[in-house]
Every structure is written in structure tokens, then in C-alpha cells.
């Protein structure tokens, strides 16, 4: 018996979301008196996996695994889980996790909770996991009835702690002779900004109150000074003022950064659905009746065109005094 965690490498390091998953897996393993095995594809410094709590690391080996194809990955994780006799399998609920965790669940007939926000409550045979429902307006406790269980974690919902542990690393040959995926990758377009919005801890976002795309320089400058990613409301993306991947909300990306600064955004319920998990929310809006203030921790009532440049200066000043 063991807990298996699917992990990924990005830019030569284990992804933060993967470390969240290994930490989570090791807390479950402790409750079940077993260990965590992490699986990974590719080469990088894997020491963080041990520090996050993995006892073993299996490097999945097969040439077909190079482009994160869902059918191959599902088969690969299934083989590792079977070799490790894993009854609980953990993913991050990022795009790859959304593609393969449910597919694996169907293959194994494993009950799955996708987007978990709490540690499982295990008592005897009962296994329950909390997840957000109704786009963050509520949470639900899901009971998993099957013997095999899969949990994918809502990114940024758990802190990462690294200890002193080390993991035993070995290669694991995956056999994909009988799996043939017809999906061929033609082109990969990586977002050029250094900060990936769903992973960002700080986000500066702006809406229709900015009046036009030509006014985004100050938003970008504030983001840059803070080391934050930029986001926007849906009409802003629909009007092509900003790229579609920046659109947050019900129909866009759901994020939960430590800090979300909303500038000139009214706070429609569909917008809140994507950001209300943020730890701290700041709202800057010229209308003191804007609904967003009801969901904010800090508010400034005023004209963004005056306030944002002052904030940029204040952040510069702050950094000068705190370094």
C-alpha cells in the first residue's frame, strides 16, 4: 500500500503545485501508515520531492511520454500505481491534472474528488474530502466509496513545507506498446510573461474602468513593481484589450492568489466566482457603491488614473526602504 503523487517539472524545477501535492500526499500517508511515491517525467534536481515528503521517486521512462499526451500519461501513472500498490493517487488540478486524473479514475473505477481544498478526513472505512462547489460560493464534503481513490488539489490552496527528507530515486520503464494515441502536437505557444497567472501569488487585475487598452501601462507597471501577474475582467478580454488567457472569473481562469488587486472592476458575481478564493482582495473603484467593495478586504474609492500611479510610487518607495 502507498500513496502515489503525480508531479511535474517546469523550468528545471519541480513545480510548486506538485510540491503542494507531495505535502498533501505525505499527510495522507502518515494517517494510513504508509509512504509517498512521487512519479515524474524528465530530468531535473529532484531533491525537493524528498524534502516535501516523498520516500520514493519513480522517473517514468518511455519515449512516448515526451509531450504530456493524456492517453500515454494515464497508462503510465496506472502502471506505476499498480507496481506501487497505491490505493490513493494525488494530482494537482491544473490543466494536465484535469486531463488525466478523471481519465485514470474511469480506468481504475476510482472515486475522484477534483479540486480539493482540505485534507481528507479518514476514519475507519470512511474517506471524505472537502472541495469548492457553486464556483466558490460553498464547499461540499465528498465521500469516496471506492477502494481506490483519486484526489486533485485546487492549486494554491495548501502551503508548501520542505523538510530534511530524501527520496530514493529510480527509473520506471513504462510499457506503452498497446497504447496508441492519434493526437499529434503541431505547435506549442507558451505565454511569454514570466509569471503564469494560475500560479501567481500576487495578481493585479483591471476592468472596463480603464477605458481602453492604451491605459494598461500603469496596470502593468504596478504589477511589475509588485512582482505580480496581470489579469482582467471578461469584457476587457472580449474587446481584445487584453489577451484571453488573462480573463478571470466564472468563464475564465479561477485563481486564488495571496493578493488580488482589482482596478476599475465592478465585482459582478461571475467575476467574483473566479477570484473570491484570493486571500486578500483590494478594490480600487471610483464608485463607492461598486459591489466589489462587499467582497474586499481593503478598498480605495477614487479615480484609478490618479491612484494607480501613486501606488506605483508607493511600492517603489516601500521596496527602497525594505531592502
Amino acid at each position: 500500500m502507498s500513496v502515489l503523487v503525480y508531479t511535474e517539472i517546469s523550468k528545471g524545477r519541480i513545480k510548486k503545485a506538485s510540491l503542494e501535492a507531495v505535502n498533501y500526499g505525505s499527510r495522507i500517508a502518515a494517517q494510513m501508515n504508509t509512504g509517498v511515491t512521487a512519479v515524474v517525467i524528465g530530468d531535473a534536481d529532484l531533491a525537493d520531492l524528498g524534502k516535501a515528503g516523498a520516500k520514493k521517486v519513480l522517473r517514468l521512462k518511455n519515449d512516448k511520454l515526451s509531450d504530456l499526451n493524456g492517453q500515454y500519461l494515464t497508462a503510465a501513472v496506472e502502471q506505476a500505481a499498480s507496481a506501487e500498490n497505491s490505493t490513493v493517487i494525488i494530482f494537482s488540478s491544473d490543466f494536465t491534472g484535469k486531463e488525466i486524473a478523471p481519465r485514470l479514475a474511469a480506468k481504475l473505477k476510482a472515486g475522484i474528488v477534483a479540486g480539493a481544498v482540505g485534507d481528507p478526513v479518514i476514519s475507519g472505512d470512511s474517506f471524505t474530502v472537502k472541495k469548492n462547489v457553486f464556483s466558490g460560493k460553498a464547499t461540499a464534503m465528498y465521500v469516496i466509496h471506492s477502494a481506490k481513490k483519486i484526489i486533485s488539489l485546487l492549486p494554491n490552496s495548501f502551503p508548501v513545507t520542505l523538510g530534511e527528507g530524501t527520496a530514493e530515486v529510480s527509473d520506471f520503464a513504462v510499457n506503452l506498446d498497446n497504447v496508441n494515441s492519434p493526437v499529434k502536437v503541431k505547435e506549442v505557444k507558451k505565454v511569454t510573461s514570466e509569471l503564469n497567472l494560475p500560479d501567481a501569488e500576487l495578481v493585479v487585475s483591471a476592468g472596463r474602468g480603464m477605458k481602453g487598452p492604451e491605459n494598461w501601462a500603469m496596470v502593468e507597471e504596478l504589477a511589475k513593481e509588485l512582482g505580480a501577474a496581470t489579469a482582467c475582467s471578461r469584457p476587457v478580454a472580449d474587446m481584445h484589450w487584453r489577451p484571453h488567457h488573462e480573463h478571470v472569473g466564472q468563464t475564465g481562469v479561477a485563481i486564488r492568489p495571496n493578493l488580488y488587486i482589482a482596478i476599475g472592476i465592478s465585482g459582478a458575481i461571475q467575476h467574483l466566482a473566479g477570484v473570491n478564493g484570493s486571500k486578500t482582495i483590494v478594490v480600487i473603484n471610483s464608485d463607492k457603491e461598486a459591489p466589489f467593495f462587499k467582497s474586499a478586504d481593503y478598498g480605495i474609492v477614487g479615480d484609478a488614473f490618479e491612484i494607480v500611479p501613486k501606488l506605483v510610487a508607493a511600492v517603489k518607495n516601500f521596496k527602497a526602504n525594505h531592502n
Binding site: V133, T139, A140, I144, Y298
Partner: peptide, 16 residues
């Protein structure tokens, strides 16, 4: 394979 046991409304924020 799964079922929902209970729900809880998300906690609102304290005053802005």
C-alpha cells in the same frame, strides 16, 4: 463512486 455528505456556505469577508 462518490456522494456529497454535507455542504457549507463560503464565509464572507469581514468589513472592507
Amino acid at each position: 463512486l462518490t456522494s456529497i455528505k454535507s455542504y457549507e456556505l463560503a464565509k464572507g469577508r469581514t468589513e472592507c
